[in-house]
């Protein structure tokens, strides 16, 4: 039984990664979106290096947030359309853990690329060295939390008309603490202040999201498909 569960979770991750690989061009969209959003900020705010350096972490975080929201929409949509979501619901394994596997594959395909590209954007905004390291740490802790809480939003809205904008509306207020602690840590590092506390809070939020978000997302899926 235990082995069966691990096998099922691994199968979900493998399947999602394979599906994504077969739609490579589509998979690149959120990443391009991440870049474009960050690009319009210097164009609209002005190119002064001093200012860009101070708003940079916030801009990168906003771009990461919007890119995550955009990519989240697909988490349950294709599964809902081809019926594999029903198979997940009927599976003898706990739905919470299967949802966890779905979230993991979302983070691997949407969160991880952002993490790898963030240093390039950081350099463009004049964030380097020490501050860039802290920014990456906040992204490492923060983007999984975005995926986890986002799963609740998309589980609630999967298959609805205008699901994307609805999920965004539901999720943005809930994302506020993550955004505040992440940008707070980076801003503190930028000014040479202690950034540990904010990072610990971010870690605590991630732990809370790991424990509760898959439960809530699984409950939402069951309700929507009852």
């Amino acid at each position: 039984m235990e082995r069966g569960l691990v096998h099922a979770c691994a199968w979900i991750v493998k399947r999602d990664l394979l599906l994504l690989w077969r739609h490579r061009a589509e998979a690149a969209n959120p990443v391009l979106f991440f870049f474009v959003i960050a690009l319009i900020f210097p164009l609209s705010l002005g190119p002064e290096p001093q200012m860009l350096q101070s708003v940079g972490p916030g801009v990168i975080w906003i771009a990461a947030l919007l890119a995550t929201l955009l990519s989240l929409e697909a988490v349950f949509r294709s599964d809902l359309e081809d019926g594999s979501l029903e198979q997940l619901l009927l599976s003898p394994h706990p739905l919470t853990l299967l949802v966890m596997a779905k979230i993991l594959s979302h983070w691997l395909t949407a969160g991880l690329p952002l993490l790898l590209l963030a240093p390039i954007l950081g350099l463009q905004f004049g964030i380097a060295g020490y501050t860039l390291g802290v920014l990456l740490l906040t992204l490492i802790l923060g983007t999984p939390a975005l995926s986890l809480m986002g799963a609740i939003g998309v589980a609630l809205t999967a298959g609805l008309r205008a699901a994307g904008i609805l999920a965004t509306l539901l999720l943005l207020p809930l994302y506020v603490p993550i955004l505040i602690f992440a940008t707070g840590a980076t801003a503190a590092a930028n000014r040479g202040l202690a950034w540990g506390p904010q990072l610990y809070m971010l870690g605590a939020l991630l732990m809370l999201a790991i424990t509760l978000a898959p439960l809530a997302a699984a409950a939402a899926l069951r309700i929507r498909n009852s």
Partner: peptide, 13 residues
């Protein structure tokens, strides 16, 4: 479900 998630998140917010 959303209200409960919000209730957990509200103090944190």
């Amino acid at each position: 479900v959303l209200a409960l998630v919000g209730a957990v998140d509200l103090p944190i917010i």
